[in-house]
Amino acid sequence: MKPLQRILHVEDDISIQEVAKVALEIVGGFEVTSCDDGQSALSRADAWQPDLILLDVMMPGIDGPTTLGKLREQPSTQAIPVVFMTAKVQPSEIEHYRAIGALDVVIKPFDPMTLAEQLRRIWEQHHV
């Protein structure tokens, strides 16, 4: 199994970007690139080819689910796994995100000390 290394984090809130960077880079030891909207995520994912995209659901402009759709249309990003991040917790919504192709959903607010571990677990579950 290929280990999880490169994570693209898409999030419009700079504060959350920064805390996630600490959580993933320093605590988790991943390589992280952040961008703050769906549009730039499309080009960044194409150019940087991350192992996984951590995608915020609610964003101004194009939102998370729409971004996911567009990633799936782009051949170069078609196969990159996407994990949604959302502050909504209704089980029906989580099911919905899985149905449209998300690997899993991470609930906001996340704990910066365990976020990396959570992603690693999701990664392993889906590659075993």
Partner: peptide
């Protein structure tokens, strides 16, 4: 926004 971020800090 606050609900989704404050806890991380």
């Amino acid at each position: 926004r606050i609900a989704g971020s404050a806890g991380s800090f």
